[in-house]
Design a binder for these strands. Structure first.
Lengths: 233, 233
DNA sequence: GCGGGAGATCTGGTCGGACCAATATGGCCC
DNA sequence: GGGCCATATTGGTCCGACCAGATCTCCCGC
């Protein structure tokens, strides 16, 4: 069971990555030299170098003779998103909102494909999840679990490897687990939610991808809007 | 002007990556040891190590004491997609199709957001591109350029960093440039294409995201279907 | 024949130090 | 101030070495 101990190189890379994502170094700014960091972390330079290669592959830094520099966020890999949202300090609410927005569209896409080509078993499972979600007396956390599970169902049934790759990067398990669940449960918008849930159920049963996509998009939109309003207050 | 020469470590990483993506090593199989590869490439082991760190960050391999192993494709980073499609040998047509499918949905998502929040200037530019695309006597390559440009417009106007990150990984510039352009140009489906183009133009002008998304999705779907049929023959 | 265990072997993780070439830096001269 | 050159700095690569965990091998007892 004992998993391989985490190499120093990995944790150094993680530390530097988080420092960069936290904005500790401005974009384009030079990172400390490999020799400096080696001394600072108390490791050999080659260890720092390996960490640097990771950072470059992640797209958060570019390495050149003369010095490594911080790369602009938009040139990074999608993989940074998860780390960005996982930072202990409250991440930029703007990023969180944009991630949720992208997640909405992404789930809509997956829902469309899933709806069009799901097997009978998958379809039944999706409908079952939906009906469970419509139960009025549902714990907030359970509700969120269901949403997550449904999303995974969509991606699986979409049978598209590219979607699966993207899904790995998107924060399917957002930091706001309970909050999102609560919003789906007992907001004044409960009725709108149920409307879309019913619409989605019908779409799935009738294999109507376009409607399923639209329903999922609106569903996600409701949650996002709610989270946004609360964040603003 | 002379850009920094490509480090050996980078090209070794690229070689190994392509070997893996080409299926030269089966999933789960052990990669040659660092020492072996160092000798094979005629470099020092530490150079191979740096390449390995890249591969691990890319998600195509996992490194453990005892040996590095090839990771399943679905655990890789979205970044591999571009490399996968760029392989000189004809990439798996199934993957190509799935990528186009994902691209369809992705562009639809971007179109929706762009339509809803584009500035007047951006909106005008999108409409201009659309009208250029409707010209009957358009070179296939130009047509494809327009499609690509429109896609970039959508992502830019969507003003969503996450979408931008995903866009970097998707093959916006697919290998089938001219083919795709040709299909948009002179297929019997030309009429269907024009219908969707007009629909999209109207949607953009009226800021109707849902319709824009649907139009873009169908537009991409037409091309994809066509490419698929040709591939099958 | 076969499962199991002990030891040899292999593998990655890290270290120390070294040289080269490209880059950055600072001071000098015009 | 602007251009220029010597120099310190930085990444790229190499050599060789040791450790600890993983893997393999082979022999033993059942």
């Amino acid at each position: 069971m004992s998993s391989t101990p985490i190499p120093q190189e990995s944790s150094i890379a993680a530390t530097l990555r988080d420092d960069i994502l936290r904005g500790q170094y401005r974009c384009g700014e030079r990172l400390p030299s490999e020799r400096d960091l080696a001394q600072r972390f108390g490791v050999h330079r080659s260890t720092v170098r390996e960490a640097f290669k990771r950072l470059e592959q992640l797209g958060v830094a570019t390495i050149q003779r003369g010095g490594a520099r911080v790369a602009p966020l938009e040139e990074a890999s999608l993989d940074v998103l998860g780390h960005l949202l996982a930072l202990d300090d409250a991440p930029d609410p703007e990023i969180v909102d944009q991630a949720l927005e992208a997640l909405s569209g992404f789930r809509a896409m997956a829902a469309r494909l899933a709806t069009e080509r799901a097997s009978e078993a998958q379809r039944a499972r999706m409908v079952a999840i939906l009906e469970a979600m419509m139960a009025p007396d549902l714990d907030a956390r359970d509700r969120f679990e269901l949403v997550t599970e449904l999303g995974e169902c969509f991606v699986a049934a979409s049978d598209n490897i590219v979607l699966r790759l993207i899904a790995r990067g998107l924060p399917a398990r957002a930091p706001d687990t309970h909050r999102a669940g609560r919003f789906l449960a007992d907001t004044p918008r409960r009725e709108a939610v149920d409307t879309q849930l019913r619409r989605l159920r019908t779409a799935i049963q009738q294999a109507d991808g376009a409607i399923a996509a639209e329903a999922v998009y609106r569903l996600s939109g409701i949650v996002r809007q709610q989270l946004r309003e609360e964040a603003r207050s």
